[in-house]
Write a protein that binds this DNA or RNA. Structure first.
Lengths: 218, 218, 218, 218
DNA sequence: CATGAATGAGTTTTCATTCAT
DNA sequence: TATGAATGAAAACTCATTCAT
C-alpha cells in the first residue's frame, strides 16, 4: 500500500504532464503540511514552497484554499471507498463483514495519519462557505454508502436499521480519532492491529458486564 | 448534571465575586462559540460580546487567546477527572471497571458535545507556542492518569501493561470523535447509550470472527 | 467658502472628539488623494499615512474602501445640495433660476476640483457591489432633486417636462467634466466664471444658427 | 455610421491579414469591455477571450495594458479628428462653425458611448507611467488642434484668443460627460440632438439673464 | 480594573506580464 | 508567432493584542 492518496499520473515530461505532476505535488504537500500544522495554520505559501511552485500557481489549480481542502477530502474518501467497496460486493458471511470493514478503516488511517488529521479538521470548517458545505456533503455521502454496505451485517446482528449511519459514523470516528490524537500525544503508530482487535473485545466484554446495570437504568 | 463545565462560584456581588463571574461567563461563552464555529474562527470579540464584557477585559483574565483555550481544556479535563476518579478509588470488580469508565466518558461528551469539539480541536493547535505545548501536556497527563486507573482492569483482561495509554486513548478518541463528527453530519445526539453498548459488542464479535485471519496475517 | 467638504466637528481633545477628527482627516485625505491619483490607484495605506493613523484604523471607521468612497460621494452631494436648495426655495424669476443654479455648480467644482474628480470616477465603479449601487442611487437621487428644482425654469423655457433629468444631468456633467479634464490637461482652474457665461451664450448662438439644419434633419 | 472606431482592414486571409484582424478584434473588444466594466476592472484575459485569442497574444500586439489603452485613445481621437477636420477646412460662416463642430462631437459620443467612457477614464490614469503621459499628450494635442480649428469662430464671437483651449475643452467635457454619466444613471441615450440644442440656448439665456449679477459681482 | 479605539503583522487572492513549448 | 501555464508583486482586509483614558 503506497502512502500516496491518489494514483500518480503517468509522470511524463510533456506540458500537461508537468502540470498534472505539479498539481499532485501540491496535494501531497498540502496533505502532509495540513496534517502536521493544522489546516488553518498551514499557509498556502508553505504548500507551494514544499511543492516547488510559485504562490500564484496554487490558484491556477484550485479556486481557493478552502476548495483545495475539499478536493483533498474528496481524494481521501475516494481512495478509501475504492478499498472497502470490494468487501461489500462479495459479502461473505454478514457476521465477519463488520470486522473486515473496520479493519480496512483502521489500517488505512494507521498507515496515513495525515488522512485522519485531514478528515477530523475538515468537518470543523465553516459550513457556510460553498467549499465547507461541499466537504460535509461529501462526508455525509461517504457515511451513507458505508451504512448501506454495512446494512446486511447490521441486520444480522440485530442493529436497528434506522441507525445505520450511527454505526458508520462510529467506525469513522473511532478510526480517525485514534490516529488524530495518537501522533499528537506521543503514541507510536505501531500499535499492532491485533491489539486493537483485543481492545474491541475487551470493551465489549466490559460493556456486557454492565448490561442490566447502568445501560438499562437511568 | 448541569451543562456548566466548572462549578459556579458563590454568586456574590462583591468586587472579586463579580470579576470571577465575568471570568466564568467568558469561559462558558468561549466553550460554546468555539465548539460551534471552530477555535480559530471564533473571534475574541464574539466571546466578550456574548459574555457581556468589553474586548479589553478578556486580556485582563487571560494572557492570550491560546492560553484561554488551554484553561478551557484544563477545566474540561478537571471536570471529567472528578467524575471518573471515584470509579478508580472504589474499584469493584476489575472486569466491570473498563465498561463503567467508558460509559462515563461517552455520557459526558454526549451531554456536552462542545467539550468534545474543544478537545478535538485543541490537540490540533500549533504545539510550538507555550500554550499549545501546555495543552498537549495537559491531555497527556489526563491520559496517563486514565491509564493508571484502568491498569487493574487491563491487567485482569490480559492487556499488555506497556500499552495502557493506547487503551486510554482509544476511550477518549472514540468518545470525543463520535460527538465531534455527529452534530456536524446531522446525526442526532440522542443515540441511547445502550445502542453504543451494543455497538461495542458487535464490533468485538466482528473482529473476533476475523481472528487468525487478516489481523494476524498480511 | 472653505475647501472642506463637511463641517468640522467641535475639534475637542476628548476621546470621541479625537476619533471624529481622525475620521475627518481620513475623508479629507481620501478625497485629495483619490482625485489626484485615481480612486482605484489610491491605496488605503496612502490615505491612512496622510491622515496620520494606522492602516487598521481605516477599517474601524469604514467597512471597506468602496464604502469609504460612497460616504465621500454622499458628503459631496450633501454639501452641494445645501448650497443650491435655497435657490429653489426662494425662486425669484424662473428665467434666471437655471443660470443661478448653473453658476453654483460651476463655482462649486471650480473651487473643489477634487469633488468633481470624485463624482466622475464614482459613477464608473462596479455597480454590482452594494457600495457601487449605493453610489449610483445617491447620484440618481441628487439628479432627481435637481430636476425637480429646475422644473419651473424648464417649464417657463419650454423644456419638455419629461426630460427634466436630462437637463439636470447636463448641468452636472458639464460642471464636473470641465474640472475633471481641466487640471489633467494643464488648464488653469482660474477660468473666470464670466468666461463660462460667455461660453454658454456662444454655444447657444452657434447651435441656434444651425437650427433648421442638421439639428432638425437626420 | 458604423460603430467600429477604426476602419476594418481588407479582410484577407493571408498571414499578416489575420494578425491585423486579431489586433482589430482586440481593440474592439477592449473598447466595449473597458467602457462597460471600467478600464482597471477589465482584465486582459476578458479582452482576449472576447476577441478569440489566447492571453499571451495580447502582449505580442501591445507592450502593456496601459499602452493598449493609449492606442485605443489614439484611435478614438483619430477617428474623431477625421470627422471634424473637413468642417475646419471648408469653414463656411464662422458663426456656425462652433455649432457644427459641437454637433459632430455630441453625435459622435451619442452613437459611441463606449468612446466617451474611454476618454473620461483615460485622463484619470496615473500620468507617471509612459503610457499615461502619452495619453494626456495625445488628448492635449487633440485639444490644441480643436482650439486652432475653432479659432476663427471664437474670434468672430469675441472669445479671448488666449483661452481657445478652454473652449475646446468645454466641448469635449460636455460631450463625453453627458454620455459617461447618462448610461450609468439610467438615462436613455435617445435624447434627440435638437433637445440638446435647446438646452444650449436655455443655458445661455439663463446665464445672460444673470449678467451684471453674480457673474460679475460676488 | 474596565473599556474600546488604535495598531500592524499576517494571509488570501488577483492579475499583468513572462517565457518555454 | 501563438499559446497558456507559471510567476510574484501588490493590495484589501482581519483580528489578536496593546494602552490611554
Amino acid at each position: 500500500m503506497p502512502p500516496t492518496v491518489t494514483v500518480a499520473p503517468p509522470a511524463s515530461d510533456s506540458r500537461p504532464g508537468r502540470r498534472a505532476a505539479a498539481r499532485q505535488r501540491l496535494l501531497e504537500a498540502g496533505l502532509a503540511l495540513m496534517a502536521e500544522k493544522g489546516v488553518q495554520a498551514c499557509k498556502v505559501e508553505e504548500i507551494t514552497a514544499q511543492a516547488g511552485v510559485a504562490k500564484g500557481t496554487f490558484f491556477t489549480h484550485f479556486a481557493s484554499k478552502e476548495s483545495f481542502v475539499a478536493q483533498l477530502v474528496a481524494s481521501v474518501l475516494d481512495d478509501l471507498s475504492r478499498r472497502v467497496r470490494p468487501l461489500g460486493l462479495t459479502p461473505g458471511e454478514p457476521e465477519s463483514l463488520l470486522g473486515a470493514v473496520g479493519s480496512v478503516y483502521l489500517r488505512y488511517f494507521q498507515l496515513r495519519p495525515a488522512a485522519a488529521a485531514l478528515l477530523v479538521q475538515a468537518v470543523g470548517l465553516d459550513p457556510e462557505g460553498p467549499a465547507g458545505a461541499a466537504i460535509r456533503a461529501r462526508l455525509d455521502g461517504h457515511l451513507e454508502a458505508l451504512a448501506a454496505m454495512l446494512a446486511p451485517a447490521a441486520a444480522h446482528l440485530g442493529w436497528p436499521a434506522d441507525h445505520g449511519r450511527e454505526l458508520a459514523l462510529a467506525l469513522v470516528a473511532t478510526a480517525t480519532g485514534f490516529f488524530w490524537y495518537g501522533p499528537r500525544l506521543g503514541l507510536t503508530q505501531e500499535v499492532p492491529l491485533n491489539l486493537m482487535d483485543r481492545l474491541g473485545r475487551m470493551l465489549a466484554r466490559g460493556l456486557a458486564a454492565r448490561e442490566g446495570g447502568q445501560a438499562r437504568g437511568r
